[in-house]
Design a binder for these strands. Sequence first.
DNA 1: ACACCGGTCAACCCCGTGGTTGAAAGCGCT
DNA 2: AGCGCTTTCAACCACGGGGTTGACCGGTGT
Lengths: 131, 131
Amino acid sequence: MTTDALSRAFAALADPTRRDMVARLSEGDATVSQLAEPYRMTLQAVYKHLRVLEDAGLVSRPKGPQPRPVRLEAQAFDLMDTWIERHRSRVEQRYRRLDAVLAEMRGDEHGEDHGDGDRGRSEAAGHPDES
Amino acid sequence: MTTDALSRAFAALADPTRRDMVARLSEGDATVSQLAEPYRMTLQAVYKHLRVLEDAGLVSRPKGPQPRPVRLEAQAFDLMDTWIERHRSRVEQRYRRLDAVLAEMRGDEHGEDHGDGDRGRSEAAGHPDES
DNA sequence: ACACCGGTCAACCCCGTGGTTGAAAGCGCT
DNA sequence: AGCGCTTTCAACCACGGGGTTGACCGGTGT
């Protein structure tokens, strides 16, 4: 079950088919069968994927009558986005700081790529902090 | 195997333990055993998680001698970030547009929340487009 | 009423994954 | 060499996830 929302969201997007669905949904709502037709898999399989996306909160659907269209829901994306942003930015800052240090030490020549240079050690006795 | 990079990245972050590791790594590099100690699971299990993160490109480690520290790698985050951003923004635009339409139709009263109102249909015959 | 159509549920199969245990490497000591 | 530390590999187990097939519900049309 993995229980927590973030896990579900990430897990949901970990599948190419599901990502493709999201991509198509971002261009407009669609019904289950409409979503299904491009793929070679069964309608039921698509439905399952849909359920996963729904459980992840990435997608919502009116419980009303017959042609229940599927609609993208932005909030779950925000969840992941902020999480990623939170940690990624930290790393990039460390990168830049290191860049700066290196630049200061020699004449600068900022390599855009990530070839591993030498390593700097830095212990972190941090608390888990999670989320 | 799920093969593609994005899938691996998302799948990697779909696990709370792994996310926690990333969170801690964003505060500074750490060795496998350092990473392992907070958790009740085996060192080997942690190592496996590490492998997943590494395969996902979220983490790198110098192949040098013994205490091989683990280091966060920003690029994979960028991958996910841009993907999410690409689609999320689309949705939000649609939201706003719909908001605007509604506002135009009546005297505006922009509900901040997402209670489902009525729905507008809009077919999309778009190509998969993927990635 | 009947059938049709879209959507949904349930049982089942296969394999990838999170976790375990056990043993083997690598490398730093003295 | 031998000890001890960290890191890694391999075999194994239980569970959940992606996919299938088959049947069932809910409206709409005629």
